[in-house]
């Protein structure tokens, strides 16, 4: 990364929020709100952030926050947009916020519709790779081989992590991107780029979880960066489903090396199983590389 985007000054969250110490999802929200600015309404669906905000009658937000039922972030976003527009408030930004569970799973249909209709909203998915708010059960964002409360038995449990950025890119939306709470400048830049566009924008933010992934609270940024290095969460963006740009290409590390930082998170895997995971990660990276080369050409 060349020159770093500057991080806006204004804090749009109050202290005292209920996140675990070292929560990267809290950091992600803080950074995204800074980039969005105060003229924003946030539609928040069930998940960690529904709790982090604080119980009624408290809140940690300085911008309007609408808590909603599970899986409704995108549909609430559509409702907000329509309501604001009909009242002549087209300038107000709408931010739909959901975790990986809310986005990849229970809210997927609403998300797809909002994207298909190219609603002028920004959807941010914060991904801690499991249903963390209910104790850490597997979601379709969980990597194969990872131990969760519902995948305690040995084996990969078959399922690959859904490639959500590609799913969103396939809707030909103006902007689909991956970002990381370990790269705050890149995240802020992407939110600002998204904010300047009309239509549906999607950002997939990787937010490691000290409680769920069982690592010491201070290691979040480092682990987030290692995930990018391991190409488990490469940083790239896609415009209109066609133009691929890789935002960062650091020195790669193996998936196995990445998981060294979270020992108890990975189940004991055979060499074949580990190789399968590595191959999967490599394939996805190669696809992105090939498409980015096409874009350059």
């Amino acid at each position: 990364m060349q020159e770093l985007t500057s991080i806006p000054e204004q804090e749009l969250l109050y202290q005292g929020m209920y996140s675990c110490p070292g929560c990267m999802a809290a950091l992600a929200m803080r950074l995204v709100l800074k980039a969005m600015g105060p003229n924003t309404i946030l539609a928040l669906t069930t998940g960690c952030w529904a709790v982090i905000d604080g119980p009624f009658p408290y809140t940690s937000s300085k911008v309007p926050f609408l808590h909603g039922a599970f899986g409704t972030a995108a549909s609430m976003g559509r409702g907000l947009r329509a309501s604001l527009d009909v009242q002549g408030k087209e300038d107000v930004q709408v931010l739909a916020w959901g975790g990986d569970g809310a986005t990849f799973d229970i809210g997927m249909t609403a998300l797809s519709a909002a994207a298909a209709y190219n609603e002028d909203i920004l959807y941010v998915c914060y991904d801690n790779e499991a249903y963390m708010n209910t104790g850490g059960q597997k979601s379709t964002a969980t990597l194969p081989g990872v131990r969760t409360t519902t995948t305690t038995q040995a084996g990969l449990a078959g399922v690959r992590k859904k490639n959500i950025v590609e799913i969103m890119a396939a809707h030909d939306i103006p902007f689909a991107a991956s970002a990381s709470a370990g790269y705050p400048h890149d995240l802020v830049k992407k939110v600002q780029q998204a904010k300047a566009l009309k239509g549906f924008k999607f950002i997939h933010v990787h937010t490691p979880c000290p409680t769920g992934w069982r690592y010491p609270p201070d290691e979040g940024p480092r682990i987030a960066r290692l995930a990018v290095q391991a190409r488990i969460h490469p940083l790239y963006h896609v415009r209109h489903g066609q133009q691929y740009v890789i935002d960062l290409d650091p020195e790669p590390i193996s998936v196995e090396e990445y998981f060294q930082t979270q020992r108890s998170r990975l189940k004991p895997l055979s060499a074949e199983e580990m190789a399968w995971i590595q191959e999967n990660v490599d394939q996805r990276w190669q696809t992105i590389v090939a498409r980015s080369r096409n874009t350059e050409a």
Partner: peptide
């Protein structure tokens, strides 16, 4: 709003009403 399901219909309207 052309919703893709009734669940989304009501979710959108709740948000629209709140706004």
């Amino acid at each position: 709003i052309m919703s893709e399901s009734e669940h989304s219909v009501m979710a959108s309207l709740i948000a629209a009403s709140e706004a």
